[in-house]
Design a protein around this nucleic acid. Structure first.
Lengths: 329, 329
DNA sequence: ATATTGTATGTAACCGGTTACATAAGATTA
DNA sequence: TAATCTTATGTAACCGGTTACATACAATAT
């Protein structure tokens, strides 16, 4: 690989001049510039990003920490981050944390050592101290740490109330909630929304809360168990994957969806259109969330001011077959 | 951030000695080492990876180019690559190419400039010339370029024959193939397997080939169209996502799966367990493919010999409800 | 007694860029 | 006409590591 010194030699100038041509700063004579450009062409010279990074302390790379890319909520989010940062010439280092504190800390250490320009965090496991150690911009995505970092989330509380209310509107009165893991902030917020709406409707019954862990199998088992003990005519699942688990459980029990039990999920991942019946869901603007987080991060990196620190994006009820009863909700 | 010179000063030694302690090479007196380690602790010193990279020309980073992470086949693959390379202290730069030549070329350029230690390619758009420009190890995943790079693929041809034969075995005689995009090598291989099996069964009829593009909506439309023109009692879809499209089309036509039309997909993504009826599929060892590719790449990077250059992993028929007829196949 | 080997450490060049500073010539200004 | 500004370019230090090479002393071999 040719270096800037090779180019300088071939063009008969100093490395400083070549650097000036490359970065378009300082004075360079038109003729000289042509000679330099010709030499660059001839040698197929590409500047070494690492050397540049070492001096400038900016790597045009960001870190993206997600719990698990194989969880179907994240691919679209990751894709959005990649798309947006790419426009500004950043590359993305992908990190799967499994929500484990240890892995997150290790990744943050590595990212720092690689001089990443910023980090997007999708997790709520981190202690303040560890994140603060990062001396680069951070944007928190989907799982707000309740503090000073810019964040992008969707309206979990409002979405949960919307879902619960929707089940009520189509006639459900024994509305269960398949809750996500209690250590995940958005799961708690959705639970709170469900609880408050149920209280307002005068239907609150803590026995109707089913504990899930955002995964299919465990959710299905939990729902099967719940049906043994309680009467249920509607299920609001904390995420779409668990909604599928609920669907499977209900079908296995020989009950009809939505006639006997209506089901609504949360997230709006493509999966919801692939089940039979298709699943109603509270759709989060997943791509937009990722894109927004990426835009915020780039702004922060480039020292631009943010109009706003915390963004709460609106969610949307999408009614499909799993909650479409005779009365048409 | 403390530098190696700060550590040297505090420990009262030269930078060379500190470097020796860090890299555990050369001679260092036990007492001296203790002093150095104490200084490192005290300053919370972490070596700067970028400086190291510049000198050593190895970044402990690899590039991973996939068509689109939001295609449900890839998250698990990406996850596997990340898991395995992480064991060896590599980080992963994720690139979405959309199978576009232009994007792939740009990414390869950037990866080179960042001194990545190797690249895993999941694409078949690249010309030999462009990949060869990469002077780091390359492993090709899922889509073999038919040449000298190490590769990991699953047995597409065999899997397709297996799927076709399975439909035959459960009684189908008008077996359609929902084909993937013709510019994707694995789609063509699966088509070839289907064609050869059909010929061997004496059932080959080119009218039963339906062109799809690996996406749901288009596949569904194509299947609806095909049913207008031909009699079909079995569908072998080139991937699982299209199988879902076929399922939706068939259900929309008021036909029963599998009684009237049996359906089998290809890939074995989690989605296949979430539909109703659950989809039979040819399961590829997705995680293992990614893990294997990552292991090959690391071996190549570290200069170890490979036992074998091209790996073709076995696929497996998974029979579920969508092909479970009365006779029990 | 001298040569050789092993241990321990420091100096400075190097990786490949960027940029502060020095230098110089021609144009402009007082 | 001397001072100042603009344009153009080069030298060398710098970013923060690694390592070849030089140096020195003690232990061992000849």
């Amino acid at each position: 690989m040719a270096t800037i010194r090779d180019v300088a030699r071939l063009a008969g100038v100093s490395v400083a001049t070549v650097s000036r041509v490359l970065n378009q700063n300082g004075y360079v004579n038109e003729e000289t510039e042509k000679r330099v450009r010709r030499a660059i062409q001839e040698l197929n010279y590409k500047p070494n990003e690492v050397a540049r990074t070492l001096f400038k302390k900016t790597s045009k790379t960001i870190g993206l920490i997600v719990p698990d890319i194989s969880n179907p909520f994240f691919p679209e989010l990751v894709r959005a981050v990649e798309d947006v940062t790419n426009i500004y010439d950043y590359t993305v280092i992908l990190c799967n944390s499994d929500e484990k504190n240890e892995k997150e800390k290790e990744y943050i250490e590595v990212l720092k050592q690689k001089y990443v320009d910023g980090v997007i965090l999708t997790t709520n496991q981190l202690e303040l101290a560890e994140v603060s150690e990062l001396d680069v911009p951070v944007v928190v995505l989907d799982r707000p740490l309740n503090h000073s970092f810019p964040s992008v989330i969707a309206d979990n509380y409002g979405g949960a109330r919307l879902a619960t209310r929707h089940l009520y509107d189509i006639g459900c009165r024994k509305i269960a909630h398949l809750q996500g893991p209690p250590h995940v902030v958005n799961a708690v917020e959705r639970f709170n929304g469900y609880r408050d709406e149920m209280k307002e409707l005068g239907l609150w019954d803590e026995n109707l809360v089913i504990l899930g862990n955002y995964h299919l199998k465990q959710a299905k088992e939990a729902v099967l168990q719940a049906f043994k003990e309680h009467t249920i005519d509607g299920i609001f699942a904390g995420n779409d994957v668990m909604a599928v688990g609920a669907l499977k459980a209900v079908q296995q029990l020989g009950l009809r969806v939505p006639e006997d039990v209506a089901i609504i999920g949360y997230d709006g991942i493509p999966l919801t259109e692939m089940t039979t019946p298709e699943l109603s869901t509270i759709s989060q603007p997943i791509y937009e969330m990722g894109a927004m987080a990426a835009r915020l991060l780039v702004k922060r990196i480039e020292g631009q001011p943010l109009d706003q620190i915390h963004y709460v994006l609106p969610v949307q009820l999408i009614q499909r077959e799993s909650t479409r009863k005779g009365e048409k909700g």
